[in-house]
Design a protein around this nucleic acid. Sequence first.
DNA 1: AGGAATCGTTCGTGAGGCACCAACTATTTA
DNA 2: TAAATAGTTGGTGCCTCACGAACGATTCCT
Lengths: 159, 159
Amino acid sequence: MSAQPLDSSEHRSGALLDHLARRMRLRSESVLAPLGLRPRHLVALTVLRAGGGTGQQALAAILEMDSTNIVGLLNDLEAKQLIERRRSPEDRRRHVVELTEDGAKRLSEAECALAGAEDEVLGALDPAERETLYKLLSRASSGTAVNCTEAICVTDDAC
Amino acid sequence: MSAQPLDSSEHRSGALLDHLARRMRLRSESVLAPLGLRPRHLVALTVLRAGGGTGQQALAAILEMDSTNIVGLLNDLEAKQLIERRRSPEDRRRHVVELTEDGAKRLSEAECALAGAEDEVLGALDPAERETLYKLLSRASSGTAVNCTEAICVTDDAC
DNA sequence: AGGAATCGTTCGTGAGGCACCAACTATTTA
DNA sequence: TAAATAGTTGGTGCCTCACGAACGATTCCT
């Protein structure tokens, strides 16, 4: 047997991450629908806000999605004018994807709208803990710290 | 209306949760395959370890899955003898679901096997931060604190 | 006792996510 | 010029999952 109790505290977050993400996603769907967004769009927008100006194959790598499916995703967002595709001046094959002002605004609105959902899912955590969680998640999601500028709720309705 | 600008720093973890869960799940699939498990199974086992002895409709509520799909999930796990369904003595309609010893062991093995995957996904976090993350996630995932007893890796290979 | 509600089970259906392949254009690089 | 790369389009197929219908077993209500 040779039971090597490695670090003793060997806690794997994978399943919990999965579980919470699912619970959050279920609630998000309905909340996001009136904004014309789906959870996956929100992920893309969030990533773009964090590390904007990336080519869309780089984006595919970050999101770990197939490049061909990225196209459709971005088509949705571009049709709603939440992102812009511009050809890169350095390499004109490349489409540089960036959040538009509308996109940043819509993202903020969406995040506001998700407050209720998050309250349900993270109800057991107090505000400080949620903030800690947020910081850990955003650090983890982009290897380097997400600068994650001030996303202020500027809507007059949802907040 | 009534725009209450709540806490100013209004950070929503939903998208990040989704993103990280996806990345984790992609890696988990291949790692878990040799163990005959899939990410969803792991979630169920984790929940059962945390709050075992639940009826399976209660389980459906926790996992927020349709009851009918729970059946298939549990069938898989029972076929592998990782869980047991026993009729509740109090209410014989009810099937009380519990982890078997094999199930607990397999779960630990799986968690060990996921170390590599987690290293990739949470690479930006140091061990202490990962532990913090784990605690926050497990607190959140079950309203009341998951007692989350010592899950020691007792395998001789993977660890 | 009889009837309604509940738990679990099985089967089927349909929508949607997603990986993958193939072919094509535009552009860069060797 | 030839090869490689970025993006796009269209199509295919698998898997997940929510949902509905029907059923046996059991409990609860009156």
